[in-house]
Design a binder for these strands. Sequence first.
DNA 1: AAACGACAAATCTTCGAAATAATCTTGACA
DNA 2: TGTCAAGATTATTTCGAAGATTTGTCGTTT
Lengths: 228, 228
Amino acid sequence: MPRARTSNPTRSDVILGQIRVDILNGRLAPGSRLGFADLGERYAVSAGVLREVLTRLVEQGLAESEAQFGFRVVDVSIERLIQLTDARVAIETLVTRQAIAAGDIAWEADVVAKHHALARIGDSMFSEGITEEWLTAHEAFHASILSGCKNAYLIEIALRLRSISEVYRCWSRPEHTRTHRDVASEHREIMAAAIGRDADRAVELTEAHIRLTTELLISGRTAELSSP
Amino acid sequence: MPRARTSNPTRSDVILGQIRVDILNGRLAPGSRLGFADLGERYAVSAGVLREVLTRLVEQGLAESEAQFGFRVVDVSIERLIQLTDARVAIETLVTRQAIAAGDIAWEADVVAKHHALARIGDSMFSEGITEEWLTAHEAFHASILSGCKNAYLIEIALRLRSISEVYRCWSRPEHTRTHRDVASEHREIMAAAIGRDADRAVELTEAHIRLTTELLISGRTAELSSP
DNA sequence: AAACGACAAATCTTCGAAATAATCTTGACA
DNA sequence: TGTCAAGATTATTTCGAAGATTTGTCGTTT
């Protein structure tokens, strides 16, 4: 739910974005406490705006709070990850189906454009792991597919779940998520199915895409736990 | 998304609840501005806590905000209501199906109990319109059915959408939503289908229940507009 | 030795004023 | 007469300190 008027973003908006990125990248570890003193020094803001930012983070599902006890980064667990994955599969397949049914030519063009940008960034990124730039393009590509759906509520829900799942990205070692799969061709096939109006195939590919990420995340995590 | 520790609710929590109820009941009209001066006097709080409360309202989908322009109650329109209804049908049928598949005996007992309470309140409420008490029981009944689903994310989404749709309740004249339907038997049938583990029928009834409410809302609204 | 109660430290929560930005009014100019 | 610009007004946003609550620790009691 971004603010409508982008001309003059509030200080809160800026800080919210910074903390958000830091949570999603793991610089603020899952489950760790978000004390006002620490954060106030880290981002150079007062307790007042911090309180607002943390509150928004809670409503977005990226933080938790207890009254009179402060805030902490949303905690992670395999149980939650599995539930989150199921929810994402259910919602995103639903939205994808509606997008393919309702998307017009402008939608197709947008999907193709976003995929192209993602593919080019992926090419020039051979072995250097996942960059900030790639993450943005990746998000934009999937968002473009969902945007074909005419229901703003469902799209918002799908994006929200996707955002929460980003917290788990910093969970496993990078090599696990990169080496054993061909993400590029997965994206190419999803795009082809979408603009080819093959809803069943697109849904099938999307589900596989989401579930594979989760499985690699879990296996990477367990491997890390058993052999630190 | 209630706070975990209920022992000492924060002042923000209290005010949030009050404003929330006032929005859902239409005492704060849809689309109306939420100025800090007015609200500060109305609820006897400072601008600081108001700011936090309004922020949470935005994230919950009950208010909107523009930077440097303040907050307003979420605006309503037939277009939005239709989208919201579609989203609710999609999500709630999904959750209902999972609840019927996964719910245990304790879940069944809870559904029966909540339905009983709702039915008794409905009986003792012949023609006096909808009371606050009935609304609470109504919400609890539907929530109990959804609670059978093991996926916390999906349940939260369903409840969130249900909360947003409450804003539309104050849209039409009371008589339209009461006279031309038998809500009690709709609920009874939904309960029977749920604990009878008849997923298809429960989904069918739930969808009809949601869509009928929307249709009566829209027809009541258009009638009101054409003959004020 | 364990349990209970009170004190102290730290933290979150609230407030009211100052700083900042946007809108509205007023006046002048083309 | 219509348009534009600048000042005045109103409202939002931010800040730092005071108030309230919880947690941890220490001493006493059973």
